[in-house]
Design a protein around this nucleic acid. Structure first.
Lengths: 255, 255
DNA sequence: ATTATCTATAGATCTATAGATAATGC
DNA sequence: ATTATCTATAGATCTATAGATAATGC
């Protein structure tokens, strides 16, 4: 047993930067759940296991803590980069990426949130209802690399004739797919989903992918060739493992 | 000059039901803007031009007022029904409806909000961040008729061969189009848009429609035939006028 | 000596109510 | 006589700080 367990008055004393990070990580799910105004400084302190006074030692105000939390969430995710840069732009990659993203959404496993509690999308929505500052920054930091990778694959698919139409920029194509997924995610954020789809989650996943590929202008022939959902599921799982096993390197840069 | 203008202490006295409606309508934009916790009862009272005490005469608590506001927003809109029921299911109607909805979104003129302040989508988002109760109800009441009409037109388009694929229910097709539009709307709710699209609003409108039609499985031939954007713009404006000129009949049923 | 932490509390709101007053309708 | 409305305020939070105390590192 540790000293603090024997003497309940003895509180763990840690360095300022470590405590700061701890406060941010404790605050993150609270702000995500109920927004800035929904949490009290008391709750923030209690959840972090410290006094309110200590909170104000590290952040001059509740708003500053909120900003710090948002900042913290905008750190680019290296593990995703590792997977994304290893991909060769192609029709197959395009289908794989869309499947992967859709699966993450349907499984409510959007990365970085810390396990199914949907922290990132919730923070995004709160931001959109405020000034959108965080939403813009987050899309730039966390989504832009995914966007670039997908756009390269769309270009490759066009070159190989798998996408036959060319009346839309690759960037817009990415956004339309992204937008569709955002609402699917959003509508499933509540205890009861906002929309009760008349199909299974598996069918939902597949139909979203089909709809997106058609929207992108993929030919029927290419879809028949690349929409092998068994293979897609397998590859998707492989990527997930790669991301999960990524060496959890430099995670200490809380500014 | 009225008596109340001469004597500033003399307040206008109106019937309970009228006052109740007035309080709800005053509260609506406030709750939409900053959510339940973002408004104080003082603000609610001041905005409505009454004392806080009077507020509590009509609603036992702030939460009850919030619920009443949400209820009020769920009244089905008769003027939309009038237009929708007059439409004959067809490929042309399908394209027209999608164009119309997309135009409303791009123009930030989503109906029922009272002029560009985006009240409904904001209430929806707040609800999704809470329990989603209102979001579900609103979709049922306000969107389901649009959904049904669109689904009938999708069925007609399939019958006439303009939509060649049949691997997706008409309901899911509607939802995917809807979802895409929801995010476009959401990302443009902030003072600065969340995503800065690299194209004009007009091009955005057209490309969204094209993406949705392709996603639905519309043939290239049908798209060439029905995607006449000049004609679509004109028809869309005609519908808008119909809705605007709809006799503002029974608008008194605040429960 | 310095740094991390706490207890206690000030001061500002915020929700909700008690009790008084003025207008309306019969 | 009834109904609509207000002023004033209680009681509960909520943010933030002052000032004290205990642990750490030199």
């Amino acid at each position: 047993m540790s000293a603090s367990a024997l003497n309940p008055k003895r509180k763990p004393r840690i360095s300022a930067s470590e405590r700061r990070r701890q406060l941010i990580e404790a605050a993150l799910p609270l702000f995500a759940q109920v927004g800035f105004r929904g949490v009290t400084t008391r709750q923030l302190a209690t959840t972090a296991g410290v006094s309110e006074a200590l909170l104000y030692q590290h952040f001059p105000s509740k708003e500053e803590l909120y900003s710090a939390v948002q900042d913290y969430c905008c750190q680019p995710r290296e593990e995703l980069k590792a997977v994304l840069t290893s991909l060769i732009p192609s029709t197959s990659t395009l289908v794989g990426l869309l499947y992967f993203q859709t699966k993450m959404v349907v499984d409510k496993a959007v990365m970085g949130g810390g396990g199914g509690n949907q922290i990132f999308p919730r923070l995004m929505m709160h931001s959109v209802l405020e000034d959108g500052e965080f939403a813009r920054l987050y899309l730039q930091r966390a989504v832009s690399r995914m966007a670039a990778t997908m756009q390269r694959s769309v270009a490759a698919a066009k070159k190989s004739g798998d996408i036959a139409v060319d009346d839309m920029s690759d960037e817009m194509r990415f956004w339309f797919c992204h937008h569709l997924l955002v609402t699917v995610l959003m509508y499933r954020l509540t205890p009861d989903p906002v929309v009760a789809y008349p199909i299974s989650e598996d069918a939902l996943l597949m139909q979203i992918v089909v709809f997106m590929l058609r929207g992108l202008g993929m030919t029927d022939a290419a879809m028949a060739k690349y929409c092998n959902f068994d293979a897609l599921r397998e590859q998707s799982q492989k990527w997930l493992n790669l991301i999960r096993d990524y060496p959890a390197g430099s995670e200490g840069n809380v500014s």
